[in-house]
Measured scan of single mutants.
Amino acid sequence: TETRTFDSEEEAKKAQKEAEKQGRTVTITRRDDRWEVRFD
């Protein structure tokens, strides 16, 4: 599991799309003013 933090939802969604192309499961969580993206 890898976790990355982004400043914008746009960036988080971009990372999510990339990871899903690779067949990974992605979870996006809102953390205050940041977006946390978890790759499984």
Rank of each mutant, 00 (worst) to 15 (best):
T3L: 13
K21F: 09
S8F: 04
D7I: 08
A19D: 02
T27G: 02
V26T: 10
K14N: 12
T1Y: 15
K17R: 13
Q16M: 14
D33I: 03
R34V: 15
S8G: 03
S8E: 03
T29I: 14
Q16V: 14
A19P: 00
D7P: 08
E18P: 01
T5F: 15
E11P: 02
K21R: 12
R34G: 12
E18G: 03
D40R: 06
R31A: 07
Q16C: 14
E18H: 07
T3W: 13
T1M: 12
A15N: 03
T27L: 06
K21W: 08
E2L: 13
I28V: 11
K17E: 14
Q22T: 09
F39V: 10
V26F: 02
R38L: 08
E11A: 09
R4N: 05
E11Y: 03
R24Y: 15
Q16Y: 10
T3R: 05
E36Y: 09
T5S: 10
R34F: 14
D32Y: 06
D40F: 12
D32I: 05
K13H: 08
T1L: 12
D7V: 07
R31Y: 12
R34D: 04
K21G: 13
K17T: 11
D7G: 10
R4G: 04
K21Y: 09
W35Q: 00
E9Q: 06
K21I: 09
F6D: 01
E20D: 04
R38P: 01
E9T: 02
K17M: 13
K17W: 12
W35T: 00
T5Q: 08
E11R: 04
K21N: 11
D33T: 06
D7L: 11
V37R: 00
K13P: 00
Q16S: 08
V26H: 02
K21L: 14
V37N: 01
E10I: 08
R4V: 12
R31H: 11
R24M: 15
W35D: 01
D40I: 13
D7T: 09
T29Y: 09
E36P: 00
A12R: 00
E18F: 07
F39H: 03
S8R: 04
K14R: 13
A12S: 02
R38W: 07
T1H: 13
K13V: 14
T25V: 13
R30L: 13
E20T: 06
V26M: 03
T5R: 05
K13E: 08
I28R: 01
F6H: 01
A15Q: 04
E2H: 12
A15Y: 15
A15K: 02
D33M: 05
D33V: 03
D7Q: 09
V37M: 08
E18C: 07
R4W: 15
W35P: 00
G23F: 04
Q22E: 14
D7E: 10
E11V: 03
E20G: 04
D32S: 06
E9D: 03
K17A: 14
G23S: 03
E9L: 15
R4P: 03
R34H: 13
T1V: 13
R31K: 14
T5I: 15
V26L: 03
S8I: 03
T27R: 06
D32R: 05
V26A: 15
D7F: 14
K21H: 10
E18N: 06
R4T: 08
R38D: 04
K21S: 14
K13W: 09
D33S: 08
T5L: 15
E10M: 07
E9G: 02
T29G: 05
D32W: 05
K17L: 13
F39Y: 14
R30V: 10
A19H: 05
Q16T: 05
E20S: 05
E18D: 10
D32M: 06
E9A: 06
D40G: 10
F6K: 01
E10S: 07
K17V: 13
T3C: 09
E20W: 10
E10W: 10
D40V: 14
R31E: 05
T1P: 12
T3M: 12
F39Q: 04
K21Q: 13
D40E: 14
T27S: 09
A12K: 00
T1K: 08
S8L: 04
K21P: 01
W35R: 00
V26P: 04
E36S: 03
A15V: 10
Q22S: 11
R4D: 03
R38I: 11
S8D: 06
F39I: 15
T3D: 04
R30Y: 14
D33H: 07
E36D: 04
K13D: 05
I28C: 03
E11D: 11
R24V: 14
E36N: 02
R30H: 12
S8N: 10
A15D: 02
E20C: 07
K17H: 11
A19F: 13
V37I: 10
I28N: 01
T5E: 09
D32N: 13
D40H: 13
V37P: 00
R38M: 09
R24D: 04
T25S: 10
F6P: 00
F39W: 11
T25D: 06
K17N: 10
F6T: 01
Q22F: 12
K17I: 14
A15R: 02
I28Q: 01
E11I: 03
D33Y: 04
D33P: 02
I28F: 01
R30D: 02
R4C: 13
S8A: 03
E11L: 06
R30S: 05
V26W: 02
T27D: 04
T5N: 06
A19W: 13
E9N: 03
D32Q: 10
R31N: 08
E18L: 09
D7N: 10
T27N: 05
I28T: 02
